[in-house]
Design a protein around this nucleic acid. Structure first.
Length: 440
DNA sequence: ATTGCCGGGAG
DNA sequence: CTCCCGGCAAT
């Protein structure tokens, strides 16, 4: 009968007060247990980013950049000067290396995204002189490019015709690479590339130029500022390269929608404008990293409309290479997170997390805002639906059974006290309900 | 096999 | 309500 239960009387109030003596002691345990909690993300230890831990390996991005530079660099503001980038896109392996110069090398620095001319966009090195290269393949591209071009006023100059367009893609790139690589940043060279191939016969992705434009327009979500997008083309971005994807960096400050094509540019922007520091002189502790995020934009003309949702199709992962720059220096601990993972759930949520983490490091006021605004999300992941869901309900995990708790890791009364001391259990435990004392 | 606790049932 | 427990899911 209930006789056994009678024993518990010694402390009448137990149910009320679970706080009895034992509890106190126990509390410590709880803590211990909780330690494990933080292991949500495992990000890569050193340069590898896994966006989504579990799945992702897709992105193997290794950058030595920030990190290395940081260590050795004496004050290089731009940590981005990554010596080498290696990206795997759609199975294609792109490796870009930049001649690493001395640590403090000027070469690493960007020309200056400074933004002296916000409207620089028009100045983009567009291939005015495109020379006829009649590549059959290119025709397609040409068409694409045209489309793009037509969309953006900026570039419409001399486009005599389709053929011209294709050139544009190519020409542009080449010219950029040529000039930039030599004089400006080391970053860019990525595409230019491989040292092994001095002259690039065929550009893998010709759309780049066009993309940029597009992306700017669409990526910026624009919403608030129409012209938010001034991309500084001054720095051609080195990273990613997917046919239709382009990575852009967006300033996360509250009202700033600025989108730049390079991380360094954005950092500088943040540092200078928002943080009020001297862009060049001061070294950056990486704080800027927290204020911007990279976004991928789907440049594909065709899908463009849809694009928002589907960044990259199948493998978003491919593009994933979101790259490094972001985290290069700033977060050693958890670099990767920022990146948006293609798979990872992404977006919104991802950002949020990020912020959170960073929060420790710096002021994050604005961040919050940003996350909300994040429309860009669409860009990254394909799994939109999922993402949404997650966002909505925090507790995603509960596939089955409508509502069953995951089960906390912490030991519960039962475990702690044992059946013998059942009277010490919290009421809930006694009633076989969710433990109230040792909650997870 | 254990453990945590939901969903119910009995007072 | 409070008190219990069957039973299931997660370990």
């Amino acid at each position: 009968m209930t006789s056994k239960r009678l024993l518990e009387q010694p402390r009448a109030g137990d149910s009320t007060h679970e706080g009895g003596e034992p509890v106190t002691g126990k509390a410590s345990k709880t803590n211990t247990l909780q330690e494990g909690a933080s292991r949500n993300f495992e990000i890569s230890p050193n340069g590898h980013y896994f966006t989504s831990t579990r799945e992702g390996h897709y992105i193997h991005k290794k950058f030595a950049c920030g990190r290395e530079e940081d260590e050795q660099s004496s004050g290089g503001v731009l940590k981005h000067g990554c010596p080498a980038h290696r990206l795997i896109l759609n199975g294609t392996h792109v490796e870009a290396r930049i001649p690493v110069r001395g640590p403090g090398e000027p070469g690493c620095r960007l020309p200056s995204p400074e933004t002296p001319h916000p409207h620089t966009s028009s100045i983009i090195p567009v291939p005015h002189d495109r020379r006829p290269s009649g590549l059959a393949d290119k025709e397609v591209m040409a068409a694409t490019v045209l489309t793009i071009l037509s969309t953006s006023p900026l570039v419409l100059n001399p486009s005599s015709s389709a053929s011209g367009a294709d050139l544009a893609g190519k020409g542009w790139k080449e010219s950029l690479s040529a000039s930039y690589s030599s004089s400006t940043s080391g970053n860019w060279s990525w595409d230019a590339s491989d040292q092994s191939v001095p002259s690039t016969p065929s550009p893998p992705l010709s759309n780049d130029p066009g993309k940029s434009f597009l992306l700017s327009s669409q990526s910026d979500d624009n919403i608030e500022e129409t012209e938010s997008t001034h991309f500084l083309f001054e720095d051609p971005i080195p990273r990613k390269r997917k046919n239709s994807m382009k990575v852009m960096f967006k300033c996360l400050w509250k009202n700033c929608e600025k989108v730049l094509s390079t991380s360094s540019g954005i950092q500088r922007h943040i540092r200078t404008i928002h943080l009020g520091r001297n862009g060049d002189s001061d070294y950056s502790d990486g704080e800027e990293d927290f204020y911007f995020s990279e976004i991928e934009v789907n440049m594909d003309p065709l899908s463009e409309g849809l694009s928002n949702l589907t960044p990259t199709s199948p493998t978003t992962s491919g593009p994933a290479p979101v790259f490094p720059v972001l985290t290069c220096d700033a977060s050693q601990s958890e670099p990767a997170r920022m990146i948006h993972t293609p798979l990872s759930q992404s977006a919104p949520s991802t950002l949020c997390h990020i912020r959170t983490d960073h929060a420790y490091q710096g002021p994050m006021t604005q961040i919050r805002t940003v996350s909300i605004g994040e429309k860009r999300q669409p860009v990254n992941h394909t799994t939109v639906s999922k993402t949404h869901t997650n966002t909505t309900s925090t507790s995603t995990s509960k596939p089955t059974t409508g509502t069953r708790k995951p089960r906390g890791e912490a030991k519960k009364c039962r475990k702690v006290y044992g059946m013998e001391k059942r009277d010490l259990w919290c009421t809930a435990c006694r009633w076989k309900k969710a433990c109230q004392r040792f909650t997870d």
